[in-house]
Simulated assay, not measured.
Amino acid sequence: MLDIAADLIRWCAEERLFAVATVVRTTGSAPRGPGAALAVDAAGTAVGSVSGGCVEGAVYELCRQAVETGEPLLETFGYSDEDAFAAGLTCGGEIDVLVAPVTPGGPAADVLRTALTAAAEGAAAAVARVVAGPAALLGQALLVRPGGAYEGRLAGPLPGLPDWDGAALERTAAAEAAALLDAGRTGSVTVGAAGARCGEPVTLLVEVSVPAPRMVVFGAVDFAHALVRVGTFLGYRVTLCDARPVFATARRFPEADEVVVRWPHEYLADAAAAGELDGRTVLCVLTHDPKFDVPLLAGALRLPVAYVGAMGSRRTHRDRERRLREAGVTDLELARLHSPIGLDLGARSPEEVAVSIAGEIVAARRGGTGLPLTGGHTPIHPEPGRAAGEAGRIGDAA
């Protein structure tokens, strides 16, 4: 849902009645992951997508139904080969979709509006919605901030629990959502209706909004122009850093969010000390000059970032490894270095090289192999945090 925040904020401001269909669980080869959403208002206007087209028509009608009835519902869509006209996923996967109406002034409207605003502004927040469990709770939501503070209510008469007020469930749900928010990961959690693991199971989809991940490109060279553009396209907040003021200018790199004129290793050390780098950060070293590369990479390879890549020929790479070892970098640290940077695409132009680098970054982030899909037997959508080919639940959409 947070991926269509800009449209839904406008709908909320206009006090439209609408319904949001959100993917809450996927198995097998599903086109889109948890959090993907399609919204439909009372006039039939639609924004977003839950499946890239496979079941959009059926989900659209369910949204229209939810708008009319005011009742949430949970629907499962899977592969259908018995009826060619049935709504199914031709890719062979299965998805669960929660369809929830949003009524102006309704109990969840304020929570969703605040969560959507946070997502649009790039602030850290999570929205936890009940997607399975007691019918009275389905679709209810909490907005959770870093540290576990929350807004909203999970309340309703539950069978066999006449005095139940939801406070324990709210505290447990907020703690679980805060943990996912801290990891920057969208996913599902199951807790007990009476708190912790007690009572009837309640499953929540926790959609996380976090600031854009960072890409830092070191070296104001021709290849950097294309890589900055690609990094921006991929959703990174891109910084270009170079010690040479004549080359590192905002005019030469208008797509960069920030252009810094400093010695790269000094900038990196200060950014790390200020807490500006995290486990999603990507560092791309395009300078291939030992006086810049060695102190920069020696520091970068000791940071808990997602990716460190360095440009250069294989000869340059061997010389760089020797110099880094002489600087005290261990073999374990060197094993984290992607050098020569990028995938083997036969790239020549700066734009092609940028695509090669971006491909390697995506593969490292998503657990892909970098091999052609043709003739392969690994999952097309590998699961986050796992090597391609392993089985399990898909839950990351960060």
Rank of each mutant, 00 (worst) to 15 (best):
F77C: 10
G78S: 12
Y79H: 15
D83L: 08
A84I: 14
F85G: 12
A86K: 04
G88M: 00
T90D: 08
T90I: 08
C91D: 14
G92T: 06
G93M: 03
I95P: 10
I95D: 04
L98V: 07
V99D: 05
A100F: 02
G105N: 02
G106S: 14
P107D: 14
A109Y: 03
D110K: 14
A115L: 07
A115M: 07
A118R: 11
A120L: 00
G122A: 05
A123N: 02
A126D: 03
A126N: 07
A128M: 10
A128L: 11
V130H: 11
G133I: 09
G133D: 07
A135M: 06
A135T: 13
A136R: 11
L137N: 03
G139K: 02
Q140F: 05
L142M: 05
L143K: 09
L143D: 04
L143I: 08
L143V: 13
V144Q: 06
R145Y: 12
R145P: 02
R145Q: 12
P146R: 13
P146K: 10
G147A: 06
G148A: 10
A149V: 06
Y150L: 05
E151S: 02
G152I: 06
G152T: 11
G152A: 06
R153S: 13
R153G: 08
L154P: 00
A155H: 10
A155V: 14
G156V: 07
G156A: 08
G156L: 06
P159D: 15
G160E: 07
L161F: 15
P162E: 05
P162D: 10
D163V: 09
D163G: 08
D163C: 05
D163W: 05
W164E: 12
D165K: 14
A167Y: 05
L169N: 09
L169F: 09
E170G: 04
R171M: 14
R171S: 15
R171P: 07
